[in-house]
Computed example of a mutant assay.
Amino acid sequence: MSLHDDAVLVLKGYGSGEDGLDAAQTELRQDYLDHLARHPDGMWKACEAGHLTASALVVDPERGRVLLTLHRKLRMWLQMGGHCEPGDGTLAAAALREATEESGITGLTLPAGGPVALDRHPIPAPCHWHLDVQYVALAPSGAAERISDESLDLRWFAYDEVAGVADSSVVRLLERTRAALGEGR
């Protein structure tokens, strides 16, 4: 199965659980599926109409903090993530690879259930959009993070600190992550 085919299956299954999706996530899911139907290269950075990316919010073992990266180019606190690569067999594998590379943490795991959120954001030309498929990555006990070349900094933030350092897309991702993990607010 190609990564493109996997993405279509993941997106078709996204939100099929008991909680379902809100209107905004339902619309994004359809936009992503339409994009992939129109663009056989829609998984790759070379697709100038935009492309899917994969990211993961890294959660500590006690589930009270998240690890964010101060992105070198954007100079914003964000979850780990980036472009899909030819060696990625699935979107989940791409998200896990990106989270591992950018956090330096070995042994991250993605809980069952697939992605927790979708987020579309504009990027500079020649491409126009990142269509991000967002997962949760759980850090193992004793995890030691290590900053990557893509980051200016890497730091753990308590859940209640995230809104003070990150933009609304990361706050929404944290809310959906906590819901997916069965945590209250």
Rank of each mutant, 00 (worst) to 15 (best):
A37G: 12
G142W: 11
L28W: 05
A144H: 06
A23D: 14
A144T: 13
E175V: 08
R97W: 05
W156S: 11
V133Q: 03
E27P: 00
P140M: 08
T100G: 07
L138V: 08
E175N: 07
V165Y: 11
P40G: 12
S55I: 05
P86T: 06
A54Q: 06
D160T: 08
L9N: 12
M76Y: 04
A139R: 07
S141Y: 04
A23C: 00
D149A: 14
V8E: 04
H71T: 10
H39F: 12
G164W: 01
R72K: 14
Y14T: 06
G17I: 07
M76R: 14
Q25C: 05
E101L: 12
P115E: 01
H121K: 14
L70E: 13
L108C: 08
L138T: 06
E98M: 13
G64A: 09
V165R: 12
R29E: 03
A117S: 14
E161P: 06
A144R: 14
D132G: 10
I147A: 05
R29L: 02
E98D: 08
P86A: 11
E27N: 10
R120E: 12
P126L: 08
L173W: 07
R176G: 00
D34M: 04
H130L: 04
L57M: 15
R63F: 03
V116D: 07
A54M: 06
A23H: 03
H71E: 15
L67C: 06
S169I: 00
T109R: 15
P140K: 10
L21K: 06
L11A: 07
L33T: 00
T26M: 11
V8Q: 03
H83Q: 15
G114Q: 03
D88E: 08
A125Y: 03
W44L: 06
T177L: 04
G89A: 13
E183V: 01
A54N: 07
E18L: 12
H39V: 02
A49Y: 03
D60H: 07
S55A: 15
Q134P: 00
E183N: 00
L52V: 11
D88I: 06
P122D: 13
P40T: 13
G42N: 11
L96Q: 12
H121M: 04
E150L: 11
R29Y: 04
S2L: 03
A37E: 14
L118C: 09
L118N: 09
G42L: 11
C127I: 08
R176S: 12
R65V: 03
A92H: 05
P111S: 05
K12F: 00
A125W: 01
A93D: 15
P126F: 09
G13Q: 12
R38V: 02
V8C: 04
R38S: 14
V171Q: 05
P61T: 10
A139W: 07
Y159N: 10
I123G: 01
G113I: 10
L138D: 13
H71F: 02
G142Q: 09
L110I: 15
C127H: 13
E27C: 03
D167T: 08
E27K: 15
D149P: 02
A56C: 10
L78V: 13
K12G: 01
S16E: 14
H130I: 00
V66R: 03
L138P: 05
D19E: 15
V8I: 15
R172C: 05
Q79N: 13
